[in-house]
Design a protein around this nucleic acid. Sequence first.
DNA 1: ATAGATGCAAATATTTTGCCGCCAG
DNA 2: CTGGCGGCAAAATATTTGCATCTAT
Lengths: 163, 163
Amino acid sequence: MSANPANRVSSGERINITSEPGRLEQELSRRGKRLTRQRRTLLRIIDTAPRHLNVEVLLRLARRADPRLNRVTVYRTLDLLKREGLVDELDLLHLRGHQHYYETRGPRDHIHVACFGCGKVREVESELFDRLKQQIEGDCDMQITVARMEIGGYCSRCRRPGL
Amino acid sequence: MSANPANRVSSGERINITSEPGRLEQELSRRGKRLTRQRRTLLRIIDTAPRHLNVEVLLRLARRADPRLNRVTVYRTLDLLKREGLVDELDLLHLRGHQHYYETRGPRDHIHVACFGCGKVREVESELFDRLKQQIEGDCDMQITVARMEIGGYCSRCRRPGL
DNA sequence: ATAGATGCAAATATTTTGCCGCCAG
DNA sequence: CTGGCGGCAAAATATTTGCATCTAT
């Protein structure tokens, strides 16, 4: 099936190399956005913290540094980053409720593969995925700004009993 | 890019051939689920109505036939259909708010391509997409039950000015 | 100086739950 | 008959808005 090694997916347990500390701050500054104390705090966390942050966790982490920081500011900052194309918003197939998850956007999109059994989420890159996007870009004459692929199922350890 | 014709995407303006009226009702019945009046109403609508229904629209359509039908019943029925793998849940990249959209699940998954400018959503099938899923299934040893791919961007008529 | 950001409270939107009476099988 | 289902009200969760105040530039 994946006879060609170039087609093989690459495992997702990598470090987020795209987010050397300060990247988001630099980007926003470059685009003429104001860097408030609250934004710096949030950007630093998003740049360095675990992937798949949700609003709840982001707020909790931010308040360690700045206890007055408001939840609304979290929402507004995430909106800004979304509009600027600096973070992606995911729902991870509603694995846990209807909240959203956010992650910094790197040079290469990846696929999220989630197990409904154990809840583990793997990130996967694939040459086929990149080609598929190109194909759609061409055939639909679209200028793609967001590409999201989320796969749900059961991993080998959680294989559904009755299937 | 898509030199191989087999790789070309197929346009999405097709009829939903997978939902000949009664299909959902048959499926649920076959699985030993009760067919109440409310469920029949909802199933009929989902089987035949426009794609990308949200709860609001589904409820409104349902109440034409059964004015007492409750919103909670809509949620519970959609949950059932999701659990049974008969409908897919989408958010279409939050094109319009954070609501979800539902569509009957056919034999072949498709990609949703949405334009942030005009809001149009195209459905696209692709041989590459099928191969990508197979690849992940194999390489991650996953038993895939849901595969969602959503693309956002700007179509030729809405091309973003400053990009 | 001033456009734009934050905090707070309240509003809105979306989804879930508890409970009781009802109905499909 | 009876266990699953639907309606209603209320709760829980998630996100947005109005407005006065503050601050980065």
